[in-house]
Design a protein around this nucleic acid. Structure first.
Lengths: 196, 196
DNA sequence: AGGGTCGCCTAACGATCGTTAGGTAGGAGC
DNA sequence: GCTCCTACCTAACGATCGTTAGGCGACCCT
């Protein structure tokens, strides 16, 4: 896979932009190279294959989601399920808004990975989704959340959150914090029992 | 654009399947032809271009969403905003579950249309989303929904609903009705004011 | 029986794809 | 001053892309 260097970081960055804008399959190696003002073949001094570029982006994104969720769960370990879910949702939104192009490539282009890598990513996604399902199940158990199908509920919330990657732009109308606040509120409300 | 015939319908169907599974750009004309047991070049007896196939699918999907929403709104014209939004959500879910591959192609592949057609679809999507925003705004005005950014709220709901297309399969664990019920409930709850 | 149309064929076009091979300019280290 | 390494180059490979041209057999209409 080669790795290393500041140039490699630049490649991932322009590739994120292009994969987000046009999709992995519709972006050629020469497109990526052109954005860096070099020849297509020169990319192979830094990268072993086009798919490696995709994997680097997707892998980094997956790691960002995982560590953010782990931190959020650690910080709310003793809190009630509602707070814990709020922390998970906020962490997820933060990762998306911190690099929406990377997040959108992660969400929409991972199917173009090789079968082995795709299977690995599928497993990591399952593990990540399980965090949400478990917190939701805990909330149902203590009566904080309505009794729903936890798989559906987790999917509902996660797909809504992932949608942010398709429209959010750092220089847009809404700040990342504002988006996070609104989405935490919408997501939690969709699950909580009637209150007051 | 050629149009016509049962064969043309078959082309759209297998193309939906392949575009959904692998994406438009990663699906070749010869892939589509192979699924029909004919030669790649023979497709051009039925179709003017590959993009026309994509457009036929996307256009039909857009029309399905539009007529379903129009019907739902007509049927609840005199009802309160909560019921009207419930009808819109249910209509949307019904269209998605009735043909999830077509819906997922509509949601994820429309960016590969030519600039002119893409602009047209963007306008139609805006119009469709406006239906949701207006009902939500009405609900906020009468105190049924919490006062939120209606654009964010509509996007939250619609991206969650569109996510169904990525995982729903007619022969899966959940019936289309069950999915619709759960999603109507989740979506409405995310917006409604605290009750009881 | 004859003409037309429909559905598919083979063959090929120019373009572009991801990738490899081999080379070269320039700076770093001894 | 020589060597080595980094970063890029040009040239080319075989494959595959969307699409066109021209032909051929099977069926319909008269």
């Amino acid at each position: 896979m080669i790795e290393a260097g500041a140039r490699r970081r630049e490649i991932d960055e322009v590739a994120s932009e292009l994969f987000h804008a046009n999709g992995y399959a519709a972006t050629s190696v020469r497109d990526i190279a052109r954005a860096l003002d070099i020849q297509g073949a020169s990319l192979y001094a830094h990268v072993a294959s086009k798919e490696d570029v995709l994997f680097a982006i997707v892998d980094r994104a997956a790691a960002a989601f995982e560590t953010a969720a782990a931190t959020a769960e650690a910080e709310t370990a003793t809190a009630d399920p509602v707070e814990r879910l709020a922390a998970l949702v906020e962490a997820h939104v933060d990762v998306v808004t911190s690099d929406p192009r990377r997040a959108s490539v992660f969400v929409t282009e991972w199917r173009h990975l090789s079968p082995v890598r795709r299977a690995g990513m599928a497993a990591r996604r399952d593990g990540y989704e399980r965090r949400f399902r478990e917190v939701i199940a805990d909330g149902v158990a203590v009566g904080a959340f309505r009794s729903t199908d936890t798989a559906i509920a987790a999917t509902f919330v996660l797909t809504a959150l992932n949608g942010i990657a398709t429209w959010y732009r750092p220089d847009g109308r809404l700040s990342a914090d504002a988006v996070a606040d609104q989405y935490v509120d919408l997501a939690l409300r969709s699950l909580t029992e009637d209150h007051r």
